[in-house]
Design a protein around this nucleic acid. Structure first.
Lengths: 186, 186
DNA sequence: TTTATTTCTAAACGATTAGTTAGTTATTGA
DNA sequence: TCAATAACTAACTAATCGTTTAGAAATAAA
């Protein structure tokens, strides 16, 4: 007994995510979101509540895309070599047509830092721990001690954070050489 | 034959820098700058022309502080070990009272990225190249081939960028372990 | 002491921000 | 066909953004 919605929430979120990913949270205005999502402010607010609400959904949407790469790492059973491949997969993932966008999660942590809304902070922390857990799982294939697994998981999650940040400003070739250096050690 | 300025530009820039360093460019408003610098908007604009002008001076002020650490690396003559010490020096430098602020240059590159004003972009690029050159100079003490020097300088400048970004969200202990891993290889 | 010059305060500028709301249009069940 | 309901458009908040400006206050040379 009412009018039908003329958009799918999953579809408009995907478009919003592209905008946040490219330009960051603060720079992305509701006005630009309206234009890019193709729907009115009223619709945005009735579907997602606030700009923050849109953003949280975008982070979840982004994480789903990352999950494809993480899934591949999990089933590959390749240990550290699998993590290296994940780094390269991410390098491809974070660039389209030579325009590097980095990682939406890393970008957000960098941009908002401690000033982030508690909800955003919680989402970021959860994501970081999930990725770290996947690294730990991959490392468990290497026959390391539990302590070694933890410390190496720390090392790779920090490397991943640094890589994601760096991939925005250095060239693909520079980053490739960097990835090789990360894994070329005893 | 005129009224005297009631502030020193170097002093108010130092205070502005602390604000930009902590909160980033966009989040730092002219209103907060007035408060923190202790001078009126009129004075800010007559001394520095624009918000961007204030920021450029802050970047230069920040670079001067970094130069103390870079100078130490240059005169130490310790090669790669000197770079490692520089990483630890930076770790101390980027934190006061457990509040990590990262690196103002890295933060800016992360926040503004390609959308940065051309003047800002130029300053960032210049800084990055200067730090890289210092790394290359330190590496020349290791008896490496010119090609090896260049590729290793690339590696350490990217590591430095990643380290600076990471130092904002990981603990001091995690970062210390990370630095050790960077340098523990053949 | 007057006058020219500069810095100061404080109010205002127009543009833009996130968010709201009144009123219209479309859809569905009765 | 008509009333109820939800989604639409578009104008509108109030606040804040970076920037400008008019006028008062202070300084130093004449």
């Amino acid at each position: 007994m009412a009018r039908k919605k003329e958009y799918l929430e999953e579809e408009v979120i995907e478009k919003a995510m592209a905008l946040f990913w490219k330009n960051g949270y603060e720079t992305t205005s509701m006005q630009r979101l309206e234009k890019e999502m193709g729907i009115n402010k009223f619709s945005i607010y009735s579907s997602f509540g606030s700009k923050n609400g849109v953003f949280v959904e975008c982070l979840n949407c982004y994480k789903q895309k990352l999950n494809v790469l993480l899934e591949k790492l999990l089933v590959s059973d390749k240990g550290i070599e699998g993590i290296k491949e994940y780094f390269y997969d991410f390098l491809e993932f974070s660039r389209d047509e030579n325009s590097p966008k980095g990682c939406l999660i890393t970008n957000t942590a960098n941009e908002l830092g401690d000033n982030a809304e508690p909800e955003i902070k919680a989402v970021l922390l959860k994501f970081m721990n999930e990725v770290r857990a996947v690294f730990a799982e991959a490392l468990s294939k290497e026959g390391l001690s539990p302590d070694d697994i933890e410390s190496k998981a720390d090392y790779y999650i920090i490397s991943m954070f640094g890589l994601a940040s760096s991939s925005k400003i250095f060239t693909k070739d520079q980053i490739s050489t960097y990835i090789e250096s990360i894994f070329n050690k005893g």
